[in-house]
Design a protein around this nucleic acid. Structure first.
Ligand SMILES: [Mn+2]
Ligand SMILES: [Mn+2]
Ligand SMILES: [Zn+2]
Ligand SMILES: [Zn+2]
Lengths: 142, 142
DNA sequence: AGAATAATGATAATCATTCTCAAAGATAAG
DNA sequence: CTTATCTTTGAGAATGATTATCATTATTCT
């Protein structure tokens, strides 16, 4: 598979910003993650990236995800069962509903909950550095 | 170490209720968990249980925790980094604050947050089966 | 182009957890 | 209390996810 040159140069400039060398595997992974609208795991990401860069190894996928994570461009979700699942870091924070039957993930966010978390922690003498709110759910039977 | 016979028979009747054979390792583990007021991991649980039943193996700790989990007498917490941490199932639900510097865990609960979770899920067509709310925090510098 | 430096792929190592199976232990019947 | 049956245990192998190692290859700088 080929990568549109507009998309490709967008990826390249993002990588340049991050001060890392421009490689086919990093371009491929970044492209795959930024295009995804789900929450794929490492194997799925490798599978998708291989369509653009067939040689990409699992080790490189893990390494690259770690560096993207540290530079804040991706988020890692550790849901129950199976390995971590990744997504592009969005402008605004959100939490997740995980369908326990299908594994599907949907997003939500609640300013009220976020504020309550802050207040509760504060009252107990803590600053919230980060948090995880996962709702494991089942579709209501109509 | 010995186990007070009052405590021991309390453990035994709990196990009898669960319809499993009464073994020294199950008595030891159950006793250790029900006495803990922190959130120990498997290795810590084995260490503590060994004081009562020196022969208890890691495999048995894992196996027994799983059966306790299935019968609902313990809860398993998967915090970031390291293995699962366990606690006795309490009457009422609570969530956790994890001190990112020390690993210490403190508990809290907020009916308002719980209700909001329910409402959000409901509005999106889901029933909440279970959930996880972990606040990774740092003590406020005075 | 050539030297310097960083990234990659293959694979070994690690960590948490589960599985396997022969030996030991618990329970129930006689 | 003994025996027969059925369950649990301990030791270690196996698994799954992730990280580390290191020689080879690719990128960047001059
Ligand atoms: Mn998301
Ligand atoms: Mn707790
Ligand atoms: Zn949130
Ligand atoms: Zn809760």
């Amino acid at each position: 598979m080929e990568l549109g040159s507009n998309r490709k140069s967008r990826m390249i400039s993002l990588l340049r910003n991050a001060n890392v060398r421009i490689t086919d595997q990093r371009i491929a992974l970044l492209s795959v993650i930024s295009e995804a609208n789900d929450h794929p795991d490492v194997l799925e990401l490798q599978k998708r990236a291989k369509k653009i860069c067939p040689s990409i190894s699992l080790a490189t996928v893990y390494r690259t995800l770690l560096s993207f994570l540290e530079s804040g461009v991706v988020h890692r979700n550790s849901f129950e069962g199976g390995g971590a699942r990744y997504e592009m870091a969005k402008e605004e924070h959100h939490d997740h509903i995980i369908d326990v039957d299908t594994g599907e993930v949907v997003e939500f966010n609640s300013d009220i909950i976020e504020n309550l978390q802050f207040e509760i922690a504060s009252k107990m003498g803590y600053d919230v550095i980060h948090h995880r709110l996962d709702l494991y759910c089942r579709k209501v039977s109509k």
